[in-house]
């Protein structure tokens, strides 16, 4: 049973007079527990696809089955619950809240999940320990290095133990050393059974994955199982 299954997904951006077609008929199948890399030139639609998979955005046309659920039938609060529990998102630019310390940042998804304060703190500390940041709990994101910030972002993405982890160029802003650390964490999570999808421009990074999917001009040109 695939955890992600899309049929002919199209995404158009309405730019007033012209329409930009970011995705042009995506048929994608990803099995539970896979580690997949997505590659493609800039502007080919990788981020757009990731947003749709992560339920941050919705397609203009086509169907998307997430764990057999038809996403287009879900309500806004169902989608919020999916973003909260089912998928974790890691961004290239970290997207941490600068005025909160890293413990609070990691707590955020637990808070929206309605988990009591004590349990939240415990769980957030645990996850931050897993990414090697136990000694930085009270630091603000601005006081950390890029690699450390990305580890906080990963901790936040996995704190609710989501089935799927989406990472859009997670090592793009990092040097080789820090990038390597991040990839080790992903490998570890993959071992534990999480489904991982990672967008990258770096062939070496992509080589860590089970499968590489290539996108050009909003179409998958290589690496699809279903094909």
């Amino acid at each position: 049973m695939p955890i992600i299954e899309t049929h002919n997904i199209i995404k158009d951006y309405d730019m007033g007079k012209v329409q930009v077609r970011a995705l042009n008929g995506i048929d994608l199948t990803i099995e539970q527990g896979e580690f997949v890399a997505i590659m493609g030139p800039s502007g080919s639609g990788k981020s757009t696809l990731m947003h749709i998979i992560g339920c941050l955005d919705s397609p203009s046309e086509g169907s998307y089955l997430l764990d057999t659920l038809q996403v287009s039938n879900l309500s806004k609060s169902d989608l919020a619950a999916i973003r909260n529990k089912k998928v974790g998102f890691v961004f290239q630019t970290f997207n941490l809240l600068p005025h909160l310390n890293i413990l609070k940042n990691v707590e955020l998804p637990l808070m929206y999940a309605g988990i009591p304060y004590k349990d939240r703190i415990k769980r957030a500390r645990e996850v931050l320990a897993n990414v090697g940041l136990s000694d930085r709990l009270r630091h603000k994101p601005g006081e950390l290095s890029g690699g450390q910030r990305q580890r906080v972002a990963i901790a936040r993405a996995i704190v609710n133990n989501p089935a799927i982890l989406l990472a859009d160029e997670p090592t793009g802003n990092l040097d080789t050393q820090a990038g390597g650390d991040i990839l080790s964490i992903f490998s570890e999570l993959h071992q534990k059974g999480h489904t991982i999808i990672i967008v990258t421009h770096d062939q070496a990074v992509a080589n860590r994955a089970d499968r590489i999917i290539r996108i050009i001009d909003g179409k998958i040109v290589d690496g699809n199982l279903a094909a």
């Binding site: 941050l56 806004k76 619950a81 997207n95 941490l96 955020l108 998804p109 929206y112």
Partner: peptide, 13 residues
């Protein structure tokens, strides 16, 4: 952006 982050980690409207 902060609102975006909150929505991305599961905040409802």
């Amino acid at each position: 952006r902060e609102i975006g982050v909150r929505l991305a980690v599961g905040a409802r409207r």
